[in-house]
Simulated scan of single mutants.
Amino acid sequence: MPELIFAGPDGRLEGRYHPQPIPDAPIAIILHPHPQFGGTMNNRVVYNLHYAFHKIGFTVMRFNFRGVGRSQGEFDQGVGELSDAAAALDYLQAMNPNSKHCWVAGFSFGAWIGMQLLMRRPEITGFISVSPPANMYDFSFLAPCPASGLIINGSADRVAPPKDTETLVGKLREQKGITISHEVVEGADHFFRDDEEHMAPMIGSVQSYVRRRLTESSR
């Protein structure tokens, strides 16, 4: 997979880019968990999401937020990280100007950043939020949420408790014009540690959801 370095708002950012052979393939950006708690673009969930999208036919990019790996800068409480995500999406779009579909997927802290990016970029047509930390961060900016998407979490998540995720889903489902899908992986913790029992079902659900959305949009 090609490694790349691209210009961010606070210095160079490090990423991984996985293109498709067709020029109008849909594009997706994958966002990693909290940089101050070991989150990087090589996190297991992020890595698996990356390849899940690529197997469906997406050109995919994931990257390290500022101060992580070879990315320059320092952690900025989510403000700078949102700017990093916007710069990464700009870069991905510039390399794929013919793409008709644009998705964002994020895990934990990355899910919070991804939902903020969704609010600022109307070209994003769908989202995946894995283990969104609704107990730690305010998601009330999603008013209204501009696109339909999937929220997925584990039933044994102690970092972002399921009850808080359910409250977030409930509030989003009150909005008109979008459809919020919600799936719970039984027994999974925040990180989907068991590959067969938890990671595989989560990734399978994501792929099924995205495939269905793409099919619906092509009708």
Score class of each variant (00 low, 15 high):
Ser155Ala: 05
Ala156Lys: 14
Ala156Gly: 02
Ala156Leu: 01
Asp157Gly: 04
Asp157Arg: 09
Asp157Phe: 05
Asp157Ser: 05
Asp157Ala: 06
Asp157Cys: 02
Asp157Met: 08
Asp157Tyr: 06
Arg158Ala: 03
Val159Asn: 09
Val159Pro: 00
Val159Phe: 04
Pro161Gln: 04
Pro161Glu: 06
Pro161Ile: 07
Pro162Asp: 01
Pro162Lys: 13
Pro162Thr: 12
Pro162Met: 02
Lys163Cys: 00
Asp164Lys: 14
Asp164Met: 12
Asp164Gly: 01
Thr165Cys: 08
Thr165Arg: 05
Thr165Gln: 13
Thr165Ser: 10
Glu166Trp: 03
Glu166Pro: 02
Glu166Asp: 15
Thr167Ala: 15
Thr167Val: 06
Thr167Ile: 07
Leu168His: 07
Leu168Glu: 06
Leu168Met: 08
Val169Ser: 11
Gly170His: 06
Gly170Gln: 08
Gly170Pro: 03
Gly170Trp: 02
Gly170Glu: 03
Lys171Asn: 11
Lys171His: 12
Leu172Ser: 11
Leu172Phe: 11
Leu172Glu: 03
Leu172Trp: 02
Arg173Phe: 07
Arg173Asn: 14
Arg173Gly: 12
Glu174Ile: 00
Glu174Pro: 01
Glu174His: 05
Glu174Gly: 15
Glu174Ala: 09
Gln175Gly: 09
Gln175Asn: 05
Lys176Met: 15
Lys176Cys: 08
Lys176Ile: 13
Gly177Arg: 12
Gly177Gln: 11
Gly177Cys: 11
Gly177Lys: 13
Ile178Val: 15
Thr179Arg: 14
Thr179Leu: 09
Thr179Ala: 14
Ile180Met: 13
Ile180Arg: 13
Ile180Asp: 06
Ile180Asn: 14
Ile180Gln: 12
Ser181Trp: 10
Ser181Val: 00
Ser181Asn: 11
His182Asp: 00
Glu183Tyr: 12
Glu183Asn: 09
Glu183Ser: 12
Glu183Asp: 07
Glu183Met: 14
Glu183Lys: 15
Val184Pro: 00
Val184Lys: 14
